[in-house]
């Protein structure tokens, strides 16, 4: 029996598309195409900001209505009335707690001890990242508010991350826990030793590079940004606190695990520090 022949066209199409993709990835990584892709990303973010806000405004009441309808048929009228009252009270309590939490974060941001002479722009966290493979957040301020690429972003406890994408009204922040994040830090008694903290992924502890073996590092010790010349963060911002430190028998470096100083899992508001490495 003769083997069926397949058209070559789809394979040619695939080959062209794969080559095009690889070219785009390479050009973007080498910087030649980055300005174009960055501009396109910025345009998309600006174009989708009102769509997102509009869809959320539509969906939220529908969701509440559907949730209410599901419960409506399940209980008798009197019980339902009581239930509704309970729900309302719970909702009020929850929203009060929510408002208190937001207020606490905002108040803390107004008085950050580690930013005495630096200007900053407060921002609301609008989303916890668009990719499952990167630790990032979206915030409600952008270039129109003075936000630029690479600016540091801080939360109530300390460093949150760095601006990696800025459109007119929104920005994307790479969190310190992201695998691509590396922060130069100082630790120990003044003037302090230098190390680099790297992210290991969302929700995972940070790890420290360049801490020599048998260095006395204790749990709870704080690592702060080094602020060396040309550093991407100003000096003195708390980055993380030590959770554990141990040295293997033949290791040249100490294995140090740290917890981010800012509560990255519950960020509501952050501040973008209007600072660049030249300052």
């Amino acid at each position: 029996m003769a083997m069926p022949r397949r058209s070559r066209r789809p394979r040619t199409t695939l080959l062209i598309l794969v080559l095009a993709s690889v070219t785009i990835i390479t050009l973007d990584a080498r910087g030649g195409f980055h300005r174009i892709s960055s501009g396109a990303k910025s345009l998309s973010a600006d174009a989708f900001a009102p769509v997102k806000s509009g869809v959320n405004d539509i969906i939220e009441p529908i969701g509440s209505f559907l949730a209410g309808s599901v419960h409506y048929g399940a209980v008798r009228q009197q019980n339902q009335k009581l239930q509704q009252e309970i729900n309302q009270l719970k909702q009020e309590r929850a929203s009060q707690a929510d408002a208190e939490q937001a207020m606490q974060q905002l108040s803390a941001l107004l008085n950050l001890p580690f930013l005495p002479n630096l200007q900053s722009v407060p921002a609301e966290v609008t989303n916890y990242g668009t990719s499952d493979f990167a630790a990032s957040i979206s915030i409600s301020v952008g270039r129109d508010d003075g936000v630029q690429l690479n600016m540091p972003v801080v939360g109530a406890g300390g460093l949150v991350g760095q601006v990696v994408q800025a459109s007119h009204h929104t920005a994307t922040v790479r969190l310190v826990t992201d695998g691509q994040s590396a922060v130069g830090v100082r630790y120990g008694p003044a003037p302090g030793s230098l190390a680099v903290l790297t992210g290991e992924g969302s929700g995972k502890p940070l790890s420290a590079d360049l801490v020599p073996s048998n260095t006395p590092v204790t749990a709870g010790e704080q690592f702060v940004t080094s602020g060396l010349q040309g550093a991407i963060y100003p000096a003195g911002i708390p980055v993380a606190t030590v959770v554990s430190a141990k040295t293997g028998s033949s290791a040249s470096q100490e294995s140090v695990e740290l917890r981010p100083a800012a509560d990255l899992a519950h960020l509501r508001y952050v501040s973008v520090v209007l600072w660049g490495p030249s300052q």
């Binding site: 598309l17 794969v18 095009a20 993709s21 690889v22 070219t23 785009i24 990835i25 973007d28 990584a29 195409f33 892709s37 396109a40 990303k41 998309s44 973010a45 989708f48 990242g129 668009t130 990719s131 493979f133 990167a134 990032s136 990696v164 994408q165 994307t172 790479r174």
Partner: peptide, 14 residues
């Protein structure tokens, strides 16, 4: 999709 992702541009296309 890559316009909205922080991962390498073009990876989703590939």
């Amino acid at each position: 999709a890559d316009l909205f992702l922080p991962t390498p541009f073009g990876l989703s296309a590939l």
